[in-house]
Simulated assay, not measured.
Amino acid sequence: MPASLVLSGPPGVGKTSVGWRVFDRCTDLDVKPAFADLDLLGAAWPAPDDDPHQSRLKATNLAAVWSNYRRAGSRSLIIAGVVENLLERRQLEDATGGPVMICRLDAPDTELAQRIHGRARETGTGLAQLVARAAELSAQLIAEDVSDHSINTAARTIDDIADEVLTRWQADALS
Rank of each mutant, 00 (worst) to 15 (best):
G124R: 07
D159F: 03
G81E: 06
A135C: 02
R133N: 03
L87M: 04
N61W: 10
D24G: 08
K15L: 05
R156M: 05
A139D: 11
W169H: 14
V65H: 13
S138K: 05
K15T: 07
T153H: 05
M101N: 07
A64N: 12
A3H: 15
D49K: 11
S67L: 11
A135H: 07
S67G: 15
D28Y: 00
R56F: 08
R115Y: 01
T60Q: 14
D172C: 11
A132M: 10
G42H: 08
L92T: 03
D172L: 14
G98L: 13
R75G: 13
R56H: 14
T123N: 01
L77Y: 12
H149Y: 15
P108E: 10
L57Y: 07
S8R: 03
A139V: 10
A34Q: 09
R119D: 08
L105G: 02
A128L: 11
V6C: 12
D109F: 02
L29T: 00
R115N: 00
L86Q: 10
T16H: 04
R21H: 06
M1I: 10
L166A: 06
V13K: 04
I158A: 00
L174W: 12
H53Q: 13
A95M: 08
A128D: 13
Y69L: 14
S4R: 11
N68F: 09
D49T: 13
R104Y: 02
D24R: 11
I79T: 12
T27N: 01
E88A: 07
I158R: 02
S76K: 08
K15F: 06
V65Y: 15
L40Y: 13
T60D: 14
L57C: 08
A3G: 14
N152D: 15
R89T: 09
P46M: 03
L112W: 05
L7E: 09
H117D: 05
G12P: 01
A113V: 06
G98C: 12
L141S: 03
G14M: 01
P33E: 04
A155L: 05
D163W: 00
N85R: 12
R90V: 00
E111P: 01
V18Y: 01
V6N: 11
N68E: 13
P11C: 01
N85Q: 12
L112G: 02
G12Y: 00
T16G: 08
F35N: 06
L62G: 10
H149L: 14
S150F: 09
A113W: 02
